[in-house]
Design a protein around this nucleic acid. Structure first.
Lengths: 111, 111
DNA sequence: TACCGGTACTCCGCAACACTAGGTACTCAA
DNA sequence: TTGAGTACCTAGTGTTGCGGAGTACCGGTA
């Protein structure tokens, strides 16, 4: 995808994960797979786990360890009240940014 | 705007500047003012100049020094062929990202 | 038994980015 | 001569996602 796209993910990936977790509790391995399904095929596993650790440490999610039939126990993340606030703030910021950029692009057509 | 918004700008600010310069040649001080008009009121001068320096060093713009009536000479930036390529790539990446996020948001409504 | 692939999580060093918080220098009006 | 407006630059900082590992548990197969 190129370096440019990587930079663009910064600050956005966290919002994406919060959004996914808000749909239903989920664990890292599962989230990684869903990201691929959703078209974010270049996001590597290590990065996903790093973000999950971060949002856990910030208290945006509750964590529960659940045994798995195949493999190590899963860390299942659930969005809590703080996480929902943060997600709402993310969508707000995103809307703002997307709006400005859309305007810039239409002003810019043909260049 | 908060830290979250700052992180979101990464990789995007550069595209914004390229887009502005693509409309017509411009210099830093002017671009800073236009950013404020366009609603990006929290982007500080120093950051703008840093990005301009970067895109200059990458050869995305041509630079011309033009004397000013009031104050030091202006560095007027013009988008060149490479810059136009980079801008196109930016819009491509942006479209992709915005599309995925929009989908995520609609899937997510009510959470 | 030994090995491999799938599941599931963790860690370290790195480069890139925008921000903070300054600074320099020129012009003109009060 | 002091200040405001114009115009540009720099050093240091924290956050971020990536690359490239490693650990561990399980079932099937040769």
């Amino acid at each position: 995808m190129g370096k440019q796209a990587t930079e663009m993910l910064k600050g956005i990936l966290e919002g994406i994960l919060l959004a996914i977790i808000s749909e239903r509790p989920a664990y890292g391995y599962e989230i990684t797979a869903e990201l691929r399904e959703r078209g974010f095929s270049d996001i590597v596993e290590g990065t996903v786990y790093a973000v999950l650790l971060r949002i856990e440490q910030r208290g945006l999610v509750d964590v529960e360890k659940v045994p798995s039939e195949k493999g190590p126990p899963r860390k299942v993340y659930t969005l809590n009240a703080q996480g929902r606030d943060s997600l709402a703030e993310f969508w707000g910021n995103w809307s703002f940014l997307a709006g400005r950029l859309e305007q810039l692009r239409t002003d810019n057509e043909g260049n």
